[in-house]
């Protein structure tokens, strides 16, 4: 039983096209879960259903077994951080953070105490009397986080909170978010389209596509064993080779080549996928299995390695290979697809 449960959520604006289609998601207390997917996959919609801005056409949203599907936003007590931060420009940092507490009609001294503590926790000391316009991007981000956390929310919802920051600040901020989240033990849902960002901070990741969750697992599991072609593509698998099952752990390609696969799945014809980094370019052909022959078409320099686009008998394959051996375009090469690196989807 999850702390947060989404049951068969369907959202449609025109009753023809579903933005979310029977979405199910269970989140345990204290977890940081990411919703990962390309734009338009429904991840923000899911977040807005949880926040209460969108009432689903069907389905239920439960928090600790209490049905909150139709509870208005302002009665949910969830902390929200927006992509735009949405700080109130007419209020100082202090008043922005105090906004939620003032609405709860808390005692002035209590508000002062809590806001000061949160400002300190978010590393904003001395900025209390500044206005949002006078802050840097990272500082605004932290004010938005402080404002959401000071109300002691049951859930923290983050909608692409890092996408307006520059690369270096993003990495610092995501560590910061993780640190604060673990310290407070607050259940957090994080929406992002950035795979690296999401893997680095999440306990679990839900990869979404076209309104459904394609895979819901730990980042390690998703990275190593994507379950569908979409997930594999989204997290950097570029090569897809159609194979047919011959016997357990042995598959055959359209050209008759045999492939051993360590991680067998239950399918008759499926696609083998492998990361460009995991393919080896070999010189001597001493075994006949897991081999693909092809011709280099394009070579591009990536810095730490070269990337080759190779035309093989089973289609185009992308390979990353170290700088030690450089192959020219037009050159025939042999590729080894290690049995433990092939994933079937």
């Amino acid at each position: 039983m999850g702390y947060i449960r989404l049951k068969d959520i369907r959202v449609s604006y025109d009753n023809k096209n579903n933005i979310l289609e029977g979405l199910n998601l269970d989140i345990q207390k204290g977890e940081l879960v990411s919703l990962l997917g390309p734009s338009g996959c429904g991840k923000t919609t899911t977040l807005r259903v949880i926040a209460g801005f969108i009432e689903p056409n069907d389905g239920q949203f439960l928090l600790e077994d209490e049905d909150l599907t139709h509870v208005p936003v302002h009665k949910r007590n969830f902390g929200l951080v927006f992509q735009s931060y949405a700080l109130f420009p007419h209020l100082t940092v202090f008043d922005n953070v105090a906004f939620g507490l003032k609405l709860k009609k808390l005692d002035k001294n209590v508000i002062q105490e809590k806001v000061d503590a949160m400002i300190k926790a978010c590393d904003l000391e001395g900025l209390g009397q500044r206005f949002p316009k006078e802050l840097s991007g990272g500082q605004r981000q932290r004010v938005a986080l402080a404002r959401a956390l000071v109300i002691e929310p049951k859930i923290l919802l983050l909608d692409e909170p890092l996408s307006n920051l520059d690369a270096k600040l993003r990495i610092n901020m995501r560590i910061e978010i993780k640190r604060i989240q673990k310290k407070l033990g607050i259940t957090t849902i994080f929406v992002t389209h950035d795979q690296e960002e999401c893997f680095s901070i999440s306990d679990k990741v839900a990869v979404m596509n076209k309104g459904v969750i394609e895979q819901y697992d730990t980042p390690e599991e998703i990275y190593a064993h994507p379950k569908t072609e979409f997930v594999a593509r989204f997290i950097g698998f570029e090569n897809f080779i159609p194979l047919k099952k011959k016997e357990n752990h042995v598959y055959v390609g359209e050209n008759g080549a045999l492939f051993h696969v360590d991680n067998d799945v239950d399918c008759q014809s499926c696609q083998a996928t492998i990361r460009p980094d995991d393919i080896l370019v070999i010189t001597s052909v001493d075994n006949k299995e897991n081999i693909l022959k092809g011709t280099v078409e394009v070579r591009t320099f990536l810095g730490k390695s070269y990337q080759y686009e190779v035309a093989t008998e089973l289609g185009r394959v992308v390979v990353n290979s170290s700088n030690e051996h450089i192959y020219e375009s037009g050159q025939d090469i042999v590729l080894l697809l290690p049995a433990n690196k092939i994933i079937l989807v």
Partner: peptide, 26 residues
């Protein structure tokens, strides 16, 4: 920005309060 209203709502303001505390001053 509509986010501003939504932020106010998420912090516990109903629509009317959000209007008077955010939209009107802005």
């Amino acid at each position: 920005d509509n986010d501003m209203m939504e932020a106010a709502e998420s912090l516990g303001a109903n629509r009317l309060t959000a209007f008077f505390k955010v939209v009107l001053p802005l």
